[in-house]
Design a protein around this nucleic acid. Structure first.
Lengths: 213, 213, 213, 213
DNA sequence: AACTAAACGAGACGGTACGTCTCGTCTTGAT
DNA sequence: ATCAAGACGAGACGTACCGTCTCGTTTAGTT
């Protein structure tokens, strides 16, 4: 975002505190107002910053909210709960907990909606949020392989495709359950979902149409 | 929507043509402008209608777009393709095709985003879109039972829960694949997804936490 | 339930009560809202009449208010107070009293303002209000002549011109005092004004530019 | 003695050119459209200014038009024409000439009409127009006293009352002649009016009820 | 210590859309 | 034919934000 006086630039450097204040104020405003009533003028006031300062750093509301929301998902972790099923349940519950927070709900879905018409924004979301969090799927698989629950994958392309499918199924189901069906993604639901997912993956190990059976 | 001069019949009745013109204009504007740049004034002009007429029938942009988008999903059908798996693949592909249309993409996600802060809107979405389309899951199950692919369910509550889970998994995965991951939900992907889903459901028939193991 | 079809007219006859109700409602609305906030829809509601009925009888707000206000000035009388000066003072005080009423203030000045751009309206005002009330000047002069305070006029054109001048000076001064200077046209002021007016008329009997000097 | 953003100096200063452009555009719109069809949006467009800029400076149509019209009367002067009577005739003719202009006619009467229900507006008119132009009466009297045509006044309160009466009579008669009677205030009429006024003032020098006769 | 130049707060600017209001007309069924 | 009721197309209202543009004021790094 900001370049720390890249090549011996003259002039006053940008305030490092401003960025944090602005992102925090954005999340706070998302909680109180939601996406559509959030205004950049209001964010600037909350952050104790002039509108000019805000526009110097972000191109608009979309970009600002992507950055503000992306930070939220960095708190996801994959604690070792002893089995692949338990690990997955754990991270799905964490994910559901984040989506239960109003700043995540409003912000994430709104920028996704905007991204349907803005390729640059979609790419920003993919890079900042989706790809960034695939680390969790990779870590989970590696741990399961270390435990012997999963065999090492032979085909890299095939493995990547499976990661994508898992990610779409996990994230998609939780988002849909939470935001569209408007039902809580509680432990019972997560348990049932995880069983179906794992059973399906175990029984259908080659989701590319080339399997024998 | 329509009130056939319910109790007091005085006064000029509302134009039935206006409703259709407005909803059509809304979809057209969604295609050309997307949610955030869609304005009700513009919709009114496209529909050849005054802004007042529009506000007399819908409370705002959100309600209008929900109704305009909900109609899109009524074109989903469940043609008999011979097997449960083929039937599911068929309807998932249809669903993906609708989500590939810009009016559905922009409109649906935007109202879902708005609904995160508006309970009335969320309920409207649930009733007009989600519950309305569960008919597909029910019809698919009934047909599979008639074929003998599935046993008749014994526990009604359990059955309803399974319907919800299937709906969240199908709709969620397709939406996520299409809108967030921004990859096409093509035949290959749908094939892989369907196999995992059906295998999982077959292998884990009681997703309610009451199983023995 | 009589059917007095005036001249063999078919159909339902116009309600005679409606006219009075509408003019009364107009004056009431002028009192409460003033000219600029008076709406014909509101007048119709107050009169218990449909907007259609109102528009069938008057072309618009201006015409309606002229008629509603014109009636107010018909209550002006010229009681015999024994002398020309006293008669004038009497009628000026009555005029000031009418102008102190809010429906007259708002309504009269507003239609005059509108009339600056509408010749038909100006003519309507002149005929319904101005010419109609010159009767007072004429009656006052006749009474003064009967008393011997004024000689009978010889030149009709000259006499008409004097009537106009008196009317402009009286009405103009009272209106300006009341509405622009916003001071009360009380007895003291009327007394001073009347003395100046009468003294001037007595000392300058030929206001037509034909005098010697 | 600088007036550079006098108290709070922060922020971009208001454009001085905008005020002049707006007032000019207002007068132009009054000429073309009249009061009732004048819209602030149209004024803004004519002035090449955003509506917000206009609303930032004036509370509404009334206030704007008062200011736009008030400037018109600043062109009144009192050239020395040799005698009190001639001086008065001169300024009355100038006044009539201004009232013959459509922007003055429409604007002045309309704001006076509005002022009948708005004390703040009436005060603004009194201060910006009435009191401001009493300078002419004062200057005329001073010049007449210097010439010996009038004695120096002894009683200040009495003198002020006379100034008010003269102003109401002059302004009132000209306005009524021009706008209500809708006859031209031409030289002949002004000559006759002035004679009556001056004769009356000369013959009745104490318009307060304390004179001897 | 003085200079320099970008970043800063404040807020005015030209725009655009909002949701409401009133206009004057039109359409209904009832009188 | 007229009425009460109320929907209709039209368009102005005054407000709220947008993103940009001056302003005069810090403030860190370079001379």
């Amino acid at each position: 975002m900001q370049s720390r006086t890249p090549a011996g630039r003259a002039g006053r450097p940008r305030s490092a505190a401003a960025d944090a204040a602005i992102l925090g104020a954005t999340r706070q405003a998302l909680v109180e107002l939601g996406w559509s009533k959030l205004t950049l003028g209001d964010v600037a006031v909350r952050a104790g910053v002039a509108k000019t300062t805000l526009y110097r750093r972000w191109a608009g509301k979309n970009e600002l909210v992507v950055d503000a929301v992306a930070e939220l998902f960095d708190e996801l972790t994959l604690p070792d709960r002893g089995s692949l099923a338990a690990d997955i349940e754990g991270v799905v519950l964490q994910f559901a907990a984040i989506l239960a927070r109003p700043e995540a709900r409003s912000g994430l879905m709104a920028v996704v909606a905007e991204a349907t018409r803005d390729d640059a924004l979609r790419e920003r979301i993919r890079a900042s949020i989706v790809e960034r969090q695939k680390r969790l799927v990779l870590a989970g698989r590696a741990r399961a392989q270390a435990r012997g629950e999963l065999p090492p994958e032979a085909d890299a392309r095939q493995a990547a495709r499976t990661v994508d499918l898992i990610f779409d199924m996990v994230a998609g189901a939780v988002v849909h359950r939470t935001l569209v069906s408007a039902e809580p993604a509680d432990e019972e639901w997560v348990h049932g979902f995880t069983r179906v997912l794992l059973s399906g993956l175990a029984a259908a190990p080659a989701p590319d149409g080339t399997e024998t059976s």
